Deep mutational scan, measured.
Amino acid sequence: TEDARKEAKKIIDNGGSPDEAAKFIKKYGLSEDQARELVKRAL
């Protein structure tokens, strides 16, 4: 979702790792793979 993508970008912009961002956005109901893909797109 757009919200999850924004959250991921915010985490990374604040110095978080892509892994942290992926873990965080899994709470939106995404699978591990979906979360990682979304983080990649957010970069």
Score class of each variant (00 low, 15 high):
1 T>F: 15
1 T>Y: 15
1 T>D: 11
1 T>M: 15
1 T>P: 11
1 T>A: 12
2 E>Q: 09
2 E>V: 11
2 E>M: 11
2 E>I: 10
2 E>K: 08
2 E>G: 08
2 E>S: 10
2 E>F: 11
2 E>Y: 08
2 E>R: 10
3 D>R: 14
3 D>I: 14
3 D>N: 12
3 D>T: 13
3 D>E: 14
3 D>H: 13
3 D>M: 15
3 D>P: 07
4 A>Q: 03
4 A>C: 12
4 A>V: 07
4 A>Y: 09
4 A>L: 14
4 A>W: 12
4 A>D: 01
4 A>R: 03
4 A>S: 02
5 R>K: 13
5 R>I: 15
5 R>L: 15
5 R>M: 15
5 R>P: 04
5 R>S: 09
5 R>T: 09
5 R>Y: 15
5 R>V: 15
5 R>F: 15
5 R>E: 12
5 R>G: 08
5 R>W: 15
6 K>H: 08
6 K>C: 14
6 K>R: 14
6 K>S: 08
6 K>Q: 10
6 K>A: 12
6 K>D: 06
6 K>P: 02
6 K>E: 10
6 K>G: 06
7 E>K: 07
7 E>F: 09
7 E>R: 06
7 E>G: 05
7 E>I: 13
7 E>P: 02
7 E>N: 06
7 E>L: 13
7 E>T: 09
7 E>Q: 11
8 A>D: 02
8 A>C: 12
8 A>V: 13
8 A>N: 01
8 A>E: 01
8 A>M: 08
8 A>S: 03
8 A>F: 10
8 A>Y: 08
8 A>P: 02
9 K>E: 06
9 K>S: 04
9 K>W: 13
9 K>P: 02
9 K>M: 14
9 K>D: 02
9 K>Q: 10
10 K>V: 06
10 K>W: 13
10 K>Y: 11
10 K>T: 08
10 K>C: 14
10 K>S: 09
10 K>L: 10
10 K>D: 07
10 K>R: 14
11 I>Y: 08
11 I>Q: 03
11 I>E: 01
11 I>F: 12
11 I>K: 02
11 I>D: 01
11 I>L: 06
11 I>N: 03
11 I>M: 05
12 I>F: 06
12 I>C: 04
12 I>W: 05
12 I>M: 12
12 I>P: 03
12 I>D: 02
12 I>K: 03
12 I>H: 03
12 I>S: 03
12 I>A: 02
12 I>G: 01
12 I>E: 02
13 D>Q: 12
13 D>I: 08
13 D>K: 11
13 D>S: 10
13 D>G: 07
13 D>V: 07
13 D>Y: 08
13 D>R: 11
14 N>V: 05
14 N>T: 07
14 N>H: 09
14 N>F: 08
14 N>S: 12
14 N>A: 14
14 N>Q: 12
14 N>W: 07
15 G>D: 03
15 G>P: 02
15 G>T: 04
15 G>F: 06
15 G>C: 13
15 G>K: 03
15 G>I: 05
15 G>N: 04
15 G>A: 02
15 G>E: 03
16 G>F: 08
16 G>A: 06
16 G>V: 04
16 G>Q: 05
16 G>K: 03
16 G>S: 05
16 G>W: 10
16 G>N: 04
17 S>R: 03
17 S>A: 05
17 S>M: 04
17 S>D: 09
17 S>I: 05
17 S>Q: 04
17 S>E: 04
17 S>N: 06
17 S>V: 06
17 S>F: 03
17 S>K: 04
17 S>T: 13
17 S>L: 06
18 P>N: 04
18 P>F: 14
18 P>V: 12
18 P>T: 07
18 P>E: 11
19 D>V: 09
19 D>W: 13
19 D>G: 07
19 D>N: 06
19 D>K: 07
19 D>H: 08
19 D>M: 09
19 D>P: 00
19 D>L: 08
19 D>T: 09
19 D>Y: 12
19 D>C: 14
20 E>N: 04
20 E>T: 05
20 E>Q: 09
20 E>Y: 11
20 E>L: 08
20 E>I: 05
20 E>D: 13
20 E>A: 07
20 E>R: 05
20 E>G: 01
21 A>I: 15
21 A>N: 03
21 A>L: 15
21 A>R: 05
21 A>K: 03
21 A>Y: 13
21 A>C: 15
21 A>M: 14
21 A>F: 15
21 A>H: 04
21 A>T: 04
22 A>E: 08
22 A>W: 12
22 A>I: 15
22 A>H: 06
22 A>Y: 14
22 A>Q: 07
22 A>V: 15
22 A>C: 11
22 A>N: 06
23 K>E: 15
23 K>T: 10
23 K>I: 12
23 K>D: 13
23 K>H: 11
23 K>S: 12
23 K>N: 14
23 K>F: 10
23 K>Y: 12
23 K>R: 12
24 F>C: 15
24 F>P: 00
24 F>Q: 10
24 F>H: 10
24 F>Y: 13
24 F>L: 11
24 F>D: 02
24 F>I: 12
24 F>A: 15
25 I>A: 07
25 I>P: 00
25 I>G: 01
25 I>F: 07
25 I>Y: 07
25 I>M: 10
25 I>V: 07
25 I>E: 01
25 I>D: 00
26 K>H: 07
26 K>W: 06
26 K>V: 14
26 K>P: 00
26 K>T: 15
26 K>Q: 15
26 K>R: 14
26 K>F: 07
26 K>L: 15
26 K>D: 01
26 K>E: 14
26 K>A: 13
27 K>R: 11
27 K>P: 00
27 K>F: 04
27 K>W: 05
27 K>H: 04
27 K>G: 05
27 K>Q: 09
27 K>Y: 05
27 K>L: 06
28 Y>D: 00
28 Y>L: 06
28 Y>S: 00
28 Y>N: 00
28 Y>M: 07
28 Y>R: 00
28 Y>C: 05
29 G>N: 06
29 G>H: 03
29 G>R: 01
29 G>Y: 01
29 G>M: 04
29 G>D: 02
29 G>S: 02
29 G>L: 03
29 G>I: 02
29 G>C: 14
30 L>H: 00
30 L>F: 11
30 L>Y: 08
30 L>G: 00
30 L>N: 00
30 L>R: 00
30 L>A: 00
30 L>S: 00
30 L>K: 00
30 L>V: 04
31 S>A: 04
31 S>F: 00
31 S>E: 02
31 S>N: 10
31 S>Y: 00
31 S>C: 04
31 S>L: 01
31 S>I: 01
32 E>M: 12
32 E>G: 03
32 E>N: 05
32 E>V: 07
32 E>P: 06
32 E>T: 05
32 E>F: 09
32 E>A: 08
32 E>Y: 12
32 E>S: 07
32 E>Q: 06
32 E>W: 13
33 D>F: 09
33 D>Q: 11
33 D>P: 05
33 D>C: 13
33 D>N: 08
33 D>H: 09
33 D>T: 11
34 Q>T: 06
34 Q>L: 09
34 Q>R: 03
34 Q>G: 02
34 Q>Y: 06
34 Q>C: 14
34 Q>N: 02
34 Q>E: 13
34 Q>F: 06
34 Q>K: 05
34 Q>D: 09
34 Q>A: 09
35 A>D: 00
35 A>F: 10
35 A>V: 11
35 A>P: 00
35 A>W: 14
35 A>H: 01
35 A>S: 03
35 A>M: 06
36 R>G: 03
36 R>N: 08
36 R>A: 08
36 R>I: 11
37 E>Q: 10
37 E>G: 02
37 E>A: 11
37 E>S: 07
37 E>W: 06
37 E>F: 02
37 E>M: 08
37 E>C: 15
37 E>Y: 03
38 L>A: 05
38 L>Y: 05
38 L>G: 00
38 L>P: 00
38 L>R: 00
38 L>K: 00
38 L>F: 07
38 L>H: 00
38 L>C: 11
39 V>G: 01
39 V>W: 04
39 V>Y: 06
39 V>A: 03
39 V>S: 02
39 V>E: 01
39 V>R: 04
39 V>K: 00
39 V>I: 11
39 V>F: 11
40 K>G: 08
40 K>V: 10
40 K>P: 01
40 K>L: 14
40 K>W: 15
40 K>Y: 14
40 K>E: 13
40 K>F: 14
41 R>G: 06
41 R>W: 14
41 R>I: 12
41 R>Y: 11
41 R>D: 09
41 R>H: 10
41 R>P: 01
41 R>F: 10
41 R>L: 14
41 R>K: 11
42 A>T: 11
42 A>F: 14
42 A>K: 04
42 A>R: 04
42 A>D: 01
42 A>E: 06
42 A>W: 14
42 A>Y: 14
42 A>N: 03
43 L>Y: 07
43 L>H: 04
43 L>W: 09
43 L>K: 03
43 L>E: 03
43 L>I: 12
43 L>M: 13
43 L>C: 11
43 L>R: 05
43 L>A: 06
43 L>T: 05
43 L>Q: 07
43 L>N: 03
